[in-house]
Design a protein around this nucleic acid. Structure first.
Lengths: 243, 243
DNA sequence: CGGGACCTTGACGGAATTCAAACCGGGTGG
DNA sequence: CCACCCGGTTTGAATTCCGTCAAGGTCCCG
């Protein structure tokens, strides 16, 4: 039984992930070609690039976004430990979005050109990649519904529950309070709202004692009412990819 | 050289698709377990279902959508020949969207439980599945940007170009005119607008001679100005999946 | 001929944007 | 140590874009 670096991956303990076999661990360990460390606030993948790498988030948070020529920005999704980034850049000819770190991050790096080998020699991992892509798609659909059809206050409530839900799955929450590195500008750009209206709406949720925040810490004060407000129907995609 | 039904697939001629090997053709032919024929206007997959099937569009158009409890509807994307539907229902525990036919449709049906075999014995096809999922994700990101950050008139222009672009790739356009089975209600529900405002905005594009339509036929009168209007940056994902 | 689905238009109201200015806490450099 | 600045937050006021309401129009189909 060899000693594979990925055996000690801190993510393995999370119930979000399935068990891996010895063979799989050995394969990923080989497949992994390095680690990328990025500092808070840096854009490490850019719209237009076609990166020869794929990454997996080991530590930290980030977000993906797309911009119009004139600077209007739309946040597409937030990335958490365990997420795959850059698959599009690898499969399609060009990335149509940028990725930025919201905290210091560590990512595991894989070579795009080894993907073929992965599909050939480790179908169960190939399946996981597909699973991850399908789940990402489902999350995006949730955001699209939100931006297209929810009111401002519903959108804010939705996003708070979303971030809380995702953070909680990777052990980044303490009961109903959690780190919230998003500025109101991020929130606005995620939900298709203006900064000013975002602020006013959040104040309303605060006044009504559904949430509170200071600095980078947010607390959900009344989960039930917040879920009601958001027309929340649970975070999609349960733990466990499996073939 | 055996005679595989999929050898005569009408989609094979389109340059949108890559060449298949004899082995691949034989595999899909086995994998395919039947055809589903649905009539215009029918919802053939529903939010909440967990279907044991995956489908591929052989003929016709449709759309995927999600609804809130109170009936607000968001169209997520339109489906064209060559598209994969139901992957989410197969991989994730539950479909979070419904799929409806906009014209009579024919779909090729595959068994979810055979997916494992496909990944094990035909990695190049497995790769195509992932490619398709990644491309779908990219299209959704385009919609999200549109709904979140474009104005009403930009959104309408964008959608017309989008439908035109996708239809044209599967030979469903004649120069700048094409079948447009969407009602204004569909358009509104795609773009996060109200029906009335959608109508007024479309009239404006008509008055300004950018587009015209009658019945189900739409014509783009001034492509350049329409692209400018939409802040269009081309339809993502070029033809040809390949490992 | 009547009904229904879809399109069209006008009037009104409201939700969200824009503009503008002040505030707050933290970091920095004189 | 304090002044200053800077990114982020907060608030008010004016504006506009878009939604809602309401009604009429058109075309097709039974």
């Amino acid at each position: 039984m060899r000693n594979h670096p990925c055996e000690r991956c801190p993510l393995r303990g999370l119930e979000l992930f399935r068990e891996f076999t010895e063979a799989e661990l050995s394969f990923v360990s080989d497949f992994k070609s390095g680690e990328l460390t990025v500092e808070k606030e840096t854009v490490f993948l850019s719209q237009g690039d076609s990166s020869p790498h794929i990454y997996t988030v080991l530590q930290g948070w980030g977000f993906r976004y797309r911009e119009l020529e004139d600077g209007r920005r739309q946040v597409l999704n937030y990335i958490f430990p365990g997420d795959l980034v850059g698959l599009q850049g690898a499969l399609l000819s060009e990335m149509e979005h940028s990725v930025a770190a919201m905290s210091d991050m560590i990512l595991c790096m894989f070579e795009r050109r080894n993907l073929e080998k992965l599909y050939k020699s480790c179908p169960s991992l190939a399946f996981d990649v597909t699973w991850l892509a399908a789940r990402e798609e489902q999350l995006l659909e949730g955001h699209l519904l939100t931006v297209g059809r929810r009111t401002a206050i519903e959108r804010i409530a939705y996003l708070i529950l979303y971030i809380h839900g995702r953070a909680s799955r990777v052990g980044m929450t303490k009961a109903d309070s959690f780190d919230m590195p998003l500025t109101q500008q991020h929130i606005a750009d995620t939900l298709g709202l203006s900064l000013v209206h975002t602020n006013k709406t959040m104040r309303r949720l605060h006044r009504d004692k559904l949430i509170s925040w200071q600095r980078n810490r947010m607390t959900i004060l009344n989960l039930d009412r917040l879920m009601e407000m958001a027309k929340w129907d649970s975070l999609p995609a349960p733990p466990r990819p499996f073939i």
